[in-house]
């Protein structure tokens, strides 16, 4: 028996919205420690890794490890039937091929259940090595989204360079070029509005902007985003999910031919 209950159903909606543009079908792996998901986009350029720890749920029961294959667009559509304040419960039998989503209004005067068929998804699991990154930038998530969107009006790729001066986002296109520099800024009143740069070595990498724009669908999950880069690794864009875990996006760089 699997039973996951979340008082803040709206959170689950945001999680699905953050993944469904990048990944169509994925397995939700549930164990006693929580729920996780790892999937690549169809071109294998980006990978999304989600973790929702069991202690972040209001009720979490998972008698047996389960891998539940779902179409993320279908789940997202289904969750749109829940109110933002609804309590959402997922239920699945150990041997069943369906999952039930139950939505309860905050006053408990409306209860809906939607049953969805599970899918058999053959997915490869990749080992993500622990790494020390050359540069880690923490910044407001809305600012990061704004930068990606603004640069995409000019070009398709972005060069992200971290030096002791700050982090520079540059692009070029048919109509011209653009550079946006963000300097470390820790003097603001609220920590979530600060930009913090931890740099061991300067690093400069090139990425396709359209993937970064997909990642910014996670902006509603967190006020801040952390971007980690090393010259020999995919970049990591991480949004923390309060008290529960994270959604991490890995993006393979463009390399000189």
């Amino acid at each position: 028996m699997l039973e996951l209950r979340l008082l803040q159903g709206g959170l689950l909606k945001k999680v699905l919205e953050a993944m469904r543009e990048l990944v169509t079908d994925a397995n939700f792996d549930c164990s006693r420690s929580g729920c996780s998901l790892q999937a690549m986009d169809s071109s294998h350029v980006a990978l999304v890794a989600l973790l929702l720890r069991s202690d972040g749920f209001d009720h979490f029961r998972c008698d047996r490890n389960r891998s539940m294959g779902m179409n993320l667009n279908h789940v997202a559509k289904l969750l749109r039937c829940a109110g933002n304040d609804d309590i959402v419960t997922l239920k699945a039998d150990d041997d069943g091929d369906t999952v039930t989503f139950m939505f309860e209004s905050p006053k408990q005067d409306k209860i809906a259940d939607f049953e969805m068929k599970l899918m058999d998804i053959q997915s490869e699991h990749l080992g993500i090595p622990e790494a020390e990154y050359q540069a880690i930038v923490k910044m407001p998530s809305q600012e990061f989204a704004r930068i990606c969107r603004d640069l995409s009006t000019i070009g398709d790729t972005v060069v992200i360079s971290v030096t002791k001066e700050g982090v520079k986002f540059s692009t070029k296109g048919d109509i011209g070029s653009a550079n946006i520099v963000c300097r470390q800024n820790t003097t603001v009143d609220k920590p979530e509005e600060s930009t913090v740069i931890e740099m061991k070595d300067p690093v400069s990498l090139t990425f396709a902007l359209r993937y970064l724009i997909s990642f910014t669908k996670a902006t509603p999950l967190s006020n801040t985003v952390t971007v980690s880069m090393s010259s020999d690794l995919p970049m990591v864009v991480e949004y923390k999910i309060a008290d529960m875990g994270y959604i991490r996006y890995y993006l393979a760089p463009k390399i000189d031919e």
Partner: peptide
């Protein structure tokens, strides 16, 4: 803009 690498160039299947 360079050649696009893939995630599997960096991470191994387990």
């Amino acid at each position: 803009g360079g050649k696009q690498s893939t995630i599997t160039n960096f991470f191994r299947r387990v």
